[in-house]
Design a protein around this nucleic acid. Structure first.
Lengths: 133, 133
DNA sequence: TCACGGCGATTACAGATGTAAACCTTGCGC
DNA sequence: GCGCAAGGTTTACATCTGTAATCGCCGTGA
């Protein structure tokens, strides 16, 4: 395959689903949380029950995306894959699927569809300068 | 909500899946094709059978994403949603989900992760200039 | 006219996903 | 010592997705 990456989910093979991703975000925000703690962060927002969070955490552990560190009789969960990597993978997927692999095309599209505010443009421009430096 | 769009799948409500998307691409490339014609374009590439294409076309029609114009005893299928809109919707979803809605963040990420080649940077810069003009 | 081939519609079916209840084990408080 | 609460594990189950096979209709060529 074209993606020579070996740092993200490509390694686990298993993809992280939408629901699972919500859990990952919580763990990325703060690692080493219990299922209950994670629930506190997402259950309300997504209308989930603690049971759902437990299931998702299990699946993530199975997928090798999350580590379960024993802490007494329970576990402290932490992400095993970096957010950077996940985000990178997802971004690349989108670019590959919809823009023929050209990231520039994506940016072009965002710009043309006015998804970019003047502010965004400024930021990007600044970024470019930085990258060029 | 932030998405004021009313032109794409938001209207249909139903999301277009990956497999369906492959079919859409063919139709965007050339509208008014029969199932068999579509198959010619994708079956080989995806290892599908004609039956699969038929199913996907049906689902797309149900979802209101594709129009089936009667032509004798068969149908000529055409996209009902513009590629622009689909691409825009998907892009926005990604940006919302992974970059807190900031397209600039996405660009920043692409840049930092070296997903952008020097060439890309040039293109983007040119684009910016144009947009500013 | 009659079987056959082309085509949409119906049905199938396994695996992934979202969402959760039920169950089981074990330390803790009474 | 014992039942309860907390936490993980197992089971459940409806949908959605991917991928087809099968059914039924009908126009066409023999």
């Amino acid at each position: 395959m074209t993606t020579s990456e070996d740092s993200n989910e490509a390694r686990t093979g298993e993809r992280i689903t939408d629901a699972e991703h919500a859990v990952m975000e919580v763990l990325w925000d703060r690692p080493r949380q219990t299922a209950a703690e994670v629930c506190e962060d997402v259950c309300a927002a997504r209308g989930w029950s603690l049971a759902t969070v437990k299931t998702l955490l299990s699946r993530l552990v199975q997928k090798g995306a999350v580590a379960a560190e024993p802490d007494g009789r329970r576990f402290l969960y932490s992400p095993l894959i970096a957010r950077e990597d996940y985000v990178g993978g997802e971004s690349r997927r989108l670019v590959d699927r919809l823009f023929g692999g050209s990231a520039a095309s994506l940016v072009a599209h965002l710009a043309e569809s006015e998804a970019l505010t003047a502010n965004d443009l400024d930021e990007i421009e600044a970024l470019l300068k930085e990258l060029r430096a």
